[in-house]
Amino acid sequence: MLSASDWSSIWLTFKLASLTTLILLLIGTPLAWHLAHTRRWWKAPLSAVVALPIVLPPTVLGFYLLITLGPKGPIGQLTHSLGLGTLPFTFSGLLVASVFYSLPFVVQPIQNAFEALDMRLLEASRTLRAKPMDTFFSVVVPLARPGFLTACILGFAHTVGEFGVVLMIGGNIPDKTRVVSVQIYDHVESMEYAQAHWLAGGMVVFSFIVLLLMYTLNRGIRMSKI
C-alpha cells in the first residue's frame, strides 16, 4: 500500500495547499474587492493578469519562475541580497509558485460574490455608524460566503492538482518539494504501477469528494455566478 515516502508526499501536499489557500485569502480578498469596485483604466489589464494562470500552460509559468527566481533572475538576486537564498528547490519556492498558479481560482469567485452584493446594505451599515472593517466582517463576508467557500475549495484543490510547475522548479526533493502529483509521476516512470494506483486512485476520490462538498454546500445558498 502506501509507503513512508507516499505519506510524506501527502502531508507535504496538504501543507502546501493549506498555506497557499490561506495566503491567497489574505491577498485575494482585497484584490477581489478592488477589482469588483474600481472603475479605473487598469481594471481590465489587472483582471487579465490575474486570469493568466488559467490560460498559460504550467510549463510556461514554471519556466519563467525558474528563470526569474534563479540566481541570475531579478527576483532571485533580490531574495539573495536579502539573505533568503534563492527560491527554486525549496518549499517556499513552491509556495510562491502555487500562489501565482492558483490566484484566479481564489480571486474570481470572491470578486463575483462582491460584485453581486447589494450596495444599499453597505450604505445602511454605514448610516448605522459601523466602521469599514465592521461592515466588511458583519455584512460583506456573510453575504459573500458562497464565494469564499468556492474560493477556498478551488484554491486548495487546484494546488493539490499542481504538477507542471512543481516539476519544473521543485527538483523532486523528498519531504521538501516532492508532492503527491510528482510522486505519482515517479511511480509511473519507474513502472511501479501498483503504488501509482493507490495514490492516483486516492486523488480521484479526494477530488470528487471536495467538489461534491462544494456543490452540496453551495446548493440552497443563493449562488452568485462563478
Binding site: I67, K72, G171, N172, I173
Partner: peptide, 20 residues
C-alpha cells in the same frame, strides 16, 4: 543537496539557469 530532473535535459536546465 540533490535535486533531480526528470530527465537529463531538465537536469541541464537546472544547471544552465544557475539554480543548481
Amino acid at each position: 543537496k540533490l535535486v533531480t530532473g526528470e530527465n537529463i535535459t531538465q537536469t541541464y536546465d537546472f544547471v544552465s539557469t544557475g539554480n543548481a
